[in-house]
């Protein structure tokens, strides 16, 4: 007989807020039953993301990023410890990916690169190479003792487009965890970090966009205490000679990359997942998978131009 003596439980306590930060749509969701307290907590996370935005932006001349760029080829610039640490981590990823990830990616010659759907042929390889000649992470000189950063070449520029959103998500999460939030998700326009479990004890379910149509999901993954980032050429691509080229430019050759439709990276840090997704697209599936398979605590899903799914060895099909 249906005569169980279990007590009814309270309702859902997930509180969400979506807003535009760092030029992207952020969504912060936390498990907190007191709705006013939840709003306070989310505000703390938002404030933290705004602080990072002010630090990294290239829109305000006073940001640390812009001060470094202005002094490129001239003199080292003193920056905060937090900023130095972020650049140091970025440099490790640059070395790891043989320069496919590069903070000085913004040094590309914009006059040469006007990527649009009307592009009919690939650029001349010599001209393309010339357009990326200022991109070189090895010319970013860090002096950790004096806390300075120096761009060795005049005209060189650094930017945090490939790592900043993930960093912001990690920091927002850290603020929330320190406030005692046991469970939540910070989603920085698709670069997201999830911790704890849902109210029903289940891990969070994270959808991954279908490279054929970003509004559809191609898969979903159940995670906790993990971060996911996806990079793909959903919208920005051209077809030349039957081959699909992404808007992503290989910083070594200056040519648009092809072969991969989307890369999803799973690791404990949103910053790392964010920073690894695009370079894997640049390096190609063979080199990218070989790299990721050697790394611990990193998993990846790659969908190639033929819609075939490739995964790192730590992902298993059942």
């Amino acid at each position: 007989m249906n005569n169980k003596t279990t007590l009814p439980q309270e309702g859902n306590t997930l509180v969400k807020r979506a807003l535009k930060l760092m030029g992207n749509r952020f969504e912060i969701s936390i498990q907190e039953s007191d709705s006013e307290r939840a709003e306070e907590l989310i505000q703390l996370a938002v404030d933290e993301i705004r602080r990072i935005e002010a630090l990294l932006t290239t829109y305000h001349p006073e940001s640390e990023t812009n001060r470094i760029n202005e002094m490129a080829g001239l003199a080292p610039v003193e920056v905060s410890t937090e900023f130095i640490a972020l650049i140091q981590r970025a440099q490790r990823i640059a070395a790891l990916t043989q320069g496919a990830f590069d903070l000085s990616y913004g040094s590309i010659d914009k006059r040469f690169w006007n990527f649009d759907a009307g592009m009919k042929s690939l650029p001349d390889p010599i001209l393309a190479k010339k357009a990326v000649q200022l991109i070189n992470y090895q010319n970013i000189e860090i002096d950790p003792l004096n806390k300075t950063v120096f761009l060795k070449e005049k005209g060189m520029r650094i930017g945090f487009g490939g790592i900043g959103k993930g960093y912001a998500a990690d920091r927002a999460k850290e603020v929330l965890v320190k406030q005692g939030v046991k469970s939540g998700i910070v989603n920085a326009a698709g670069d997201l970090t999830a911790w704890g479990k849902q109210e029903n004890g289940e891990p969070w379910t994270i959808g991954i966009a279908d490279p054929r149509a970003a509004s559809h999901l191609f898969s979903y993954i159940n995670i906790t205490d993990m971060s996911v980032a996806t990079s793909g050429n959903y919208e920005k691509f051209v077809e030349i000679g039957g081959k699909r080229y992404s808007h992503t430019i290989d910083p070594r050759t200056g040519m648009p990359v092809s072969g991969i439709k989307s890369v999803t990276i799973i690791s404990p840090y949103a910053e790392l997942s964010d920073a690894l997704a695009t370079p894997v697209m640049v390096m190609g599936k063979a080199v990218g998978l070989d790299l990721l398979n050697q790394m611990k605590q990193v998993a990846a899903l790659i969908i190639d131009e033929n819609n075939q799914l490739h995964t790192t060895k730590n992902i298993q099909v059942i």
């Binding site: 191609f218 993954i221 072969g259 599936k285 190639d304 799914l309 995964t311």
Partner: peptide
């Protein structure tokens, strides 16, 4: 740590790790 991954989509094949090397890439394993 256990991760469940659910995949949706019309993908013909599913491969673990290695595939033929990409000659277009300027990067080396």
């Amino acid at each position: 740590k256990k991760i469940c991954l659910t995949v949706v989509g019309l993908y013909i094949g599913l491969f673990a790790a290695f595939s033929q090397s990409n000659t277009d890439s300027s990067y080396r394993s």
